[in-house]
Amino acid sequence: MSDAKKVITLICERACDLSGIVDDSGSCTEVPGMKVVKFPCSGMIQPLMIENAIKAGADGVVVTGCQIGDCYYREGNRMIRERLLGDRPPTLKKGTDRRRILALWLAKPQRQRFISESKEFIATLNNLATPEAK
């Protein structure tokens, strides 16, 4: 563990409640290496933002929205899920390393699930070899 993996989570502010475990600089105190960027709705997240994050040096990106079926704005989480899966434009670019992206759909009370899933995700990132050449 010379240096912890850098993971960024793009999260809907109405999805699982991280208040209290995110400090002012945007780091998650429960998950080492986790940075948090809040959105009004997960539907606002562009695949381009995820690509930019990876390009800027993130080892992984966690997209977090509300439970599928329960978007405050009706469809945002379905939209970003379809975009990630390549079923709705705009999608991720071909060369994007999809092993470094995880999407979680968690309701407000599910903070523990978020923490455990993120830790598990970081563990899988540790097992990944050096970033793919392409």
């Binding site: 960027v37 959105f39 709705c41 539907g43 562009q46 933002m49 930019n52 994050a53 945002g76 939209m79």
Partner: peptide, 27 residues
Amino acid sequence: CGVCVGACAFDAIDLPDLPDAEVNAKI
């Protein structure tokens, strides 16, 4: 809600209080 921002591949629609350029800079 910003779903249109997520739908736009050209950065051509923005929420005035959270432009995507700002989001990318923050990331």
